[in-house]
C-alpha cells in the first residue's frame, strides 16, 4: 500500500513544489507558452526541485551508510559531527584561502568531514560502555565541540553572524548557475546502490564482514568518503539540514525491514519527499517570506527523532 502510494505522493509534492512560490505560476501560463513563466520554471523552480530531491536522497542515504558502519540506528551526519566538521572546513577555507572559491571550500569541507568522521568511528570503537544511546550522545557532543571551535574562529574573524546565516539549510538561493555542484550526489547514489549489499554486511559487524570476504576497513572508509562528499556538497549548496538521514531510514526500517537492496529506493524516495514537503511548508508558512529548510526540516526531523527515542524506550 505505502509502497505504491509513495511514488504518487512524491510526484504530487514535486508538482506542488513547482507551482508554489512568491511568483505566481500556473499550468495554464506554461501551456500558453509564457516566456516569463518558463523562465521562472527553468531558472528557479526546476533547479530548486532538483537540488531538493538530490539533497533529500543524498542525506537519507548518508544516514543509512553511517548507521551500518557505526552499527547504531541513531547516527547520521548531524549526530556524528559530520555536519559541524563540514561547516568548520568551509569556515577555514573562507579565512585561509578566500580566493579559492566554491571548489576550494568544497575540498576543505570534504577533507574535514572525512577526517572527523574517521576520528568519530575510531572513538566509538574504543568506548568502554557499549550502549546504543551513548553513541549519538557522544556524536552530538563531538559536533558541539567542533562547532564551538568554529565559533571561536569565526568570532575572531568577525564572521560569526555571517556564518550562522549561510550555514542554515536554505534552498531559496538555489538558482540556475550556482547549484550544479549538487549533481555530484548522483554518482554517490549510484555507488551506494552498487555497494548496498556490502554495507548491509558491514552492519552485521567486523567479524561477519571478514568471514564473508569483505575488507572491512576499505569498505567502511569508502562509505565514510561517500558520506563526506554528500555532506560537504549539500552544506556548500544549501547549508546544513539535520535529522533527515536519521528519521527517514528508521521510519522505513520500521515498516519495511533493513535489507538495503530492497529498502534503498524507498529510503531515497522518502528522503526526497520529506525535503520537498518541508520546502513547500517553508514557502507557505509565512508567505511571502520563506522559512529556511534548515528550520522546517530540522524542527520536523527533531520532533520525529524525539518521538523515535521515546518509542524505542518502550
Amino acid at each position: 500500500m505505502i509502497r505504491r502510494a509513495l511514488p504518487l505522493l512524491f510526484v504530487l509534492l514535486c508538482s506542488v513544489s513547482l507551482l508554489v512560490g512568491v511568483k505566481q505560476l500556473s499550468w495554464a501560463q506554461l501551456f500558453a507558452g509564457s516566456t516569463d513563466a518558463w523562465l521562472t520554471l527553468t531558472a528557479s523552480r526546476l533547479p530548486r526541485l532538483a537540488a531538493l530531491v538530490l539533497a533529500g536522497v543524498g542525506l537519507s542515504l548518508c544516514g543509512v551508510i553511517l548507521q551500518h558502519i557505526v552499527r547504531n540506528k541513531f547516527v547520521e551526519p548531524a549526530t556524528t559531527g559530520g555536519l559541524d566538521a563540514a561547516k568548520l572546513g568551509i569556515l577555514l577555507a573562507l579565512t585561509l584561502t578566500p580566493e579559492a572559491g566554491a571548489l576550494g571550500r568544497m575540498l576543505f569541507a570534504l577533507v574535514f568531514c572525512f577526517a572527523c568522521s574517521l576520528l568519530f568511528v575510531a572513538i566509538i570503537g574504543r568506548l568502554r560502555v557499549q550502549h546504543s544511546v551513548l553513541v549519538p550522545v557522544i556524536g552530538l557532543m563531538y559536533g558541539s565541540v567542533l562547532s564551538a571551535i568554529a565559533e571561536f574562529h569565526a568570532y575572531r574573524h568577525n564572521i560569526l553572524q555571517n556564518m550562522q546565516g549561510w550555514l542554515l539549510g536554505d534552498f531559496s538561493r538555489v538558482v540556475q548557475g550556482n547549484y550544479e555542484v549538487i549533481y555530484l550526489i548522483l554518482p554517490i547514489v549510484l555507488l551506494t546502490y552498487l555497494y548496498a549489499q556490502r554495507f548491509t554486511v558491514l552492519g552485521m559487524g567486523q567479524d561477519t564482514a571478514r568471514n564473508l570476504g569483505i575488507n572491512y576497513v576499505a569498505t567502511a572508509s569508502l562509505g565514510l568518503l561517500l558520506v563526506s562528499v554528500t555532506v560537504s556538497v549539500t552544506v556548500i549548496c544549501v547549508g546544513a539540514i539535520p535529522f533527515v538521514g536519521l528519521v527517514i531510514p528508521n521510519l522505513v526500517a520500521l515498516q519495511f525491514g533493513e535489507n538495503l537492496q530492497r529498502t534503498l529506493p524507498i529510503i531515497a524516495l522518502s528522503g526526497a519527499s520529506l525535503l520537498v514537503a518541508c520546502d513547500i511548508l517553508g514557502r507557505v508558512l509565512i508567505y511571502p517570506f520563506e522559512v529556511p529548510i534548515g528550520l522546517t526540516a530540522g524542527g520536523l526531523g527533531g520532533v520525529l527523532f524525539l518521538a523515535l527515542i521515546l518509542w524505542t524506550r518502550r
Binding site: 544511546v133 528550520l295 530540522g298 524542527g299 527533531g302 520532533v303 527515542i309
Partner: peptide, 20 residues
Amino acid sequence: YFLLLFGLVLTLVLTTFTQF
C-alpha cells in the same frame, strides 16, 4: 544516556523553534 540524548535533541528542537 536515554535521558541525555532526549535532553540534547530537545534542546536542538527548541532552539530551532526559537530561530523560526
